[in-house]
Design a protein around this nucleic acid. Structure first.
Lengths: 203, 203
DNA sequence: CTAGTATCTGATATAGGCTCTCATTTGCAT
DNA sequence: ATGCAAATGAGAGCCTATATCAGATACTAG
């Protein structure tokens, strides 16, 4: 099932796997129902029924309804990719590379899922706001990464400015891009945007 | 009840004034109760009671509970200030000036109200997300203003990057600043951040 | 001044999100 | 196998939010 890390706890029992499975099942059914009959039109009760659990259980795994769509591990992957960048790159360059490698390396299956989530998050106001909340949390994460790399403090003005600007870039690119080639346009906008951040936005 | 305003706008009927009064009363009571006993701890029903209206009426004026705190006209003032900037400034310089003049020119009474709202929006997750939704909407507004000033398209990559970066800056500064001199720190961070946007973020 | 009209208001009913508690079941270790 | 800890299901209950409908209130025309 899973390769054991060196000090990977042997305590990864059946229980944990069952939890992961239940969690995945709930989210999968939720996304399917959202796609088929809309987000607001789908009650948590119906989702629970489809996933063959009780409503209580749904809320135990996903504290709020938006979480059914929002939950994501892309951030973790990007953090990993960022740390893996060679140290001679500037912070912005490392961010660009990390961004491209983590977003570009999406398999077909996974990409379709992302697109589905993206569509929901853009069209349903409630989800849009929840996602922005995630973004805000990400600012801190990026600031810490950049601080770590540059040796500056995490609340340094320039570090914060960079982290904020990158997040803002993604917000703008997220809502501006459109149509079938959304992913491509989004990546493109992010990349050119980050380049502009480094060279200076002189308009 | 109230003396006839001799130079009151003639076409502003009694009905309209009553509406504005009710609206103000509701919001005022809401903010007071939120301050005294917390946001989540205050139900809309209690607010309605304090403002001497029915719960239905509260929701008629403020469609959602967060709206009781979020409503704001600072954006409009900033747009006005931006348009008033001399055309020889760069877009970023004009933004900096507009920002300073609209935020710096807050009266004592108004400033206190803003601080109260700011505190709520930072501490209550629900309000934080609602505010971020406002921010996202603002991206488009800024992009259009910058486009208008520079003669570029509103969906131009650089224009979007600038608008997004500025919003991201404000998100970062909003959550990073802290303590008593919050307003001052916030303004300071925004100003240095925008300067960095123009000169380039080379870390 | 009166009657008619539009709008605002309040009461009620309802749905659905979300929290909490408690009893039961299930996985896990000795 | 047995005791412990965790996960689950069932249900009650609160609150936000919406829709409807009847009654009250301000505007307007005659």
């Amino acid at each position: 099932m899973d390769a054991m890390g060196i000090d990977d706890p042997p305590r990864l029992g059946l229980r944990e796997r069952k939890k992961a499975k239940t969690r995945a099942a709930i989210q999968e059914q939720a996304l399917r129902l959202f796609r088929e009959q809309g987000y607001e039109e789908t009650s948590v009760e119906v989702i629970a029924e489809a996933a063959e659990v009780s409503p209580s259980t749904v809320f135990r795994y996903f504290p709020t309804k938006p979480d059914l769509v929002i939950y994501d591990d892309l951030d973790d992957r990007m953090i990993e990719a960022f740390r893996a960048q060679p140290p001679d790159l500037t912070a912005v360059q490392a961010l660009r590379a990390a961004f491209l490698s983590s977003f570009g390396g999406l398999a077909g299956e996974e990409l379709a899922l992302q697109r589905e989530r993206e569509l929901l998050m853009r069209s349903v106001p409630e989800l849009r706001e929840a996602m922005l909340g995630e973004f805000a949390r990400t600012v801190r994460a990026i600031a810490e990464l950049v601080a770590e790399r540059t040796g500056r403090a995490a609340d340094d003005d320039a570090v914060l400015a960079l982290a904020g600007a990158v997040i803002g870039l993604s917000i703008a690119a997220w809502f501006a891009s459109d149509g079938d080639d959304w992913t491509a346009r989004f990546l493109e906008r992010m990349d050119t945007g980050m380049a502009l951040l480094e060279s200076g936005l002189r308009l």
